[in-house]
Amino acid sequence: MSTPPAYPRSAALDSIEKLHARTLPARLWSWRYLVLRRLTQFGVLLLFFGTAHWGWEAAKGVPLLNGNLSASELAGVLPMTDPFAALQIFLAGHVLHTESLLGAAIVLGFYALVGGRVFCAWVCPVNAVTDLAGWLRQHLPVSTLFSLPRGIRYFVLAAALILSVIAGVAAFEWVSPIGMLQRGLIYGMGLGFLSLIAIFLFDLLILKNGWCGHLCPLGAFWSLVGKVALLRVRFDKTSCTHCGECARVCPEPQVLNLKKLERTGWVVSGECSNCGRCTALCPEDSLNFDLRPLIRARHAATLAKAANPH
């Protein structure tokens, strides 16, 4: 094993300097994934809303995107079901019909390709609320109140499944602020906005990335799916200067553990939501979206080259 490469502090400072010296177009360009994420988040909801209220149709008499994020049907042919909701309903004691099972398989397959928590960063509307809270928190002098292990979400996930059995209803679906928001925007909000205010204040003042990064069981579910995802963030250790800017903007900074990244060559953790903050920001272009098999091949080649330079 060769000695670990040294990361001179000057190189890291140069990197940060590079970030600060960016031109305005370069700054705007680094927001590209943020803009795309907001577009998909609200675009999906708009498709649901337009179908529900303005009669948007794929063909005559065929609703365009009928339903909501829990379950829907695209153009009358493609069923989609939230697999976590389907799992809870199954545990609550109902045998789902073929359409919803097929829909769950389709959605599960899609996110297994693009990354489980792509749902969180690119589709879930609560993400816009928590991103706003996170951004404000960075710019306000909010001190840390307490810390909570991020793994707690997996216990919330387990609790949701166990309670579904005990209570005989889909435990998370009945209290989900995600459901309240997305259903509320399409079918009428009622008092659902209160839970969003609660999440906003929780994330802003009580716990940084509190909801999405610690508690949300749906995020935990997609984290587990994300472990096998195809689309991942590749890490290039030769160009990285350890400036740490990526971890500063990352809502799940534990996935950017540089020691681990150097060993694996990519972000392994399913908790990465492929939001693209780090890839767009990295001043050395060390982080990029790539497909897992390609990353593996590349990483193996680099390792071989390092072991045998000639």
């Binding site: 009928n66 829990s70 609550a92 209803v169 679906e173």
Partner: peptide, 16 residues
């Protein structure tokens, strides 16, 4: 009780 367990709250019935 069965309906409470089975409904996924998607609103497709509402739309059609």
């Amino acid at each position: 009780a069965d309906f409470n367990a089975a409904c996924i709250k998607c609103g497709q019935c509402v739309n059609v």
